Amino acid sequence: MDSTLPSPNPALLVPPSMPLYDSIRGSIFAPSPTVLITTILVIFLTPIFLHFIVFHSRSPISLPTFLLVGPAASGKTSLMTSFESEPGQPPVETRTSQTPHSLECFVPASIARTSEYRSAHDPSLKAHKRFLLLDTPGHGKLRHIALTRISSTTIRGVIFVLDSSLTDVRVVAEYLYDVLLTLQSSATSTTTQSKKLLVACNKSDAFTALPPSKIQKLLEDEITKMRVSRSKGILDVEDDGEGNDEKEWLGEGGEGPFTFQSMEEVGVEIEFKGGSVENGEWRNCLSPWIGSCL
């Protein structure tokens, strides 16, 4: 029996993958300029691409907004800028505006409604709650801007600013009537919490200024007259067979003397406050009310 084994083929001793391995190793340690440039671009552009995908795909965060409405020259813009001025400093000089403009403000988190049940040692109470004050034009032809924004989901409260001298109660009452109708319609069409309105009786330091309680009574009497006249117009339209628009009835049924307290039955909470921009009172007066809405 022949015990001699056949000699192995030298070609079989070289792994078939060696040329490919040498090629890959050569590409890694001695890359071509094209490969080098492509790698550098991928390294630097990938984070930028991910940044645009992650951050720009998110919807912008909307701050809670408080709408400033009221007749022209009532002091809305001055009231807004009082939040911008440091306490004790004179208010920023303003002029009649024809377009809405906003200002980002803040109140201490400790006075916010959401912090009511937090511990006094909660670190979050040391922060601030941010919000926007949105000033709207008071001219009669531009009031639709404010009325169309009242129903927005970002609106947490409406601040109706008037001159405490109340030289033309009917003009003020007409605008306030339309604001109340819009708030009533918004409150009854949603199941969210009540709509909040603050009537800010500005320039209370003037010699002819009336106290908020007197202003409230004068406005209630004037709105009662307006509600009767407008209700009569609605009834006349109904008699003509064109139907009755319930949105035009302010309050429950639209009958009897009007009171601001009765608006709570339709989901609108109203509060009166007096103050003056010149004395720097509004920042301290409004902050607790704004905090209760946040």
Rank of each mutant, 00 (worst) to 15 (best):
T4S: 15
S7Q: 14
P10C: 11
V14M: 11
P16D: 14
G26F: 09
I28K: 08
A30R: 14
P31G: 13
P31C: 08
P33K: 07
V35M: 05
L36M: 11
T39W: 12
T39P: 02
I40N: 05
P47E: 05
F49N: 11
L50Q: 11
L50F: 07
L50E: 08
V54I: 15
F55M: 02
S57R: 13
P64Y: 02
F66K: 00
L68I: 11
V69W: 04
G70T: 02
S74V: 04
T77F: 00
L79C: 09
T81L: 11
F83T: 04
E84S: 12
P90T: 09
T96P: 08
L103C: 05
F106T: 09
V107R: 00
S110A: 12
R118L: 11
H121N: 08
S124L: 12
L125A: 01
L125H: 01
K126G: 13
A127S: 14
L132I: 13
L134C: 04
T136I: 04
P137N: 07
G140P: 06
G140K: 14
I145W: 10
I150C: 09
S151Y: 05
S152A: 14
T153I: 03
T154C: 10
T154Y: 04
T154R: 07
R156V: 02
G157K: 03
F160Y: 12
V161C: 04
L162I: 12
S165L: 08
L166F: 05
T167A: 13
D168E: 10
V171E: 09
V171F: 07
A173M: 06
D178L: 15
D178P: 01
A187G: 15
T188S: 14
T190F: 06
T190H: 15
K195D: 07
L197Q: 08
A200P: 05
S204R: 10
T208H: 12
A209I: 10
L210F: 12
S213W: 00
K214H: 13
D221L: 05
I223Y: 07
T224V: 01
M226K: 07
S229Y: 07
S229R: 13
K232F: 14
I234L: 09
L235D: 15
D236Y: 03
E238F: 06
D239K: 15
E242P: 00
E242D: 11
E242G: 05
W249D: 08
W249P: 01
E252W: 08
G253K: 10
G253T: 11
G256I: 07
F260Y: 08
Q261G: 15
E264P: 00
E264W: 00
V266R: 11
F272N: 06
G275H: 02
E278F: 12
R283L: 03
L286A: 03
I290D: 02
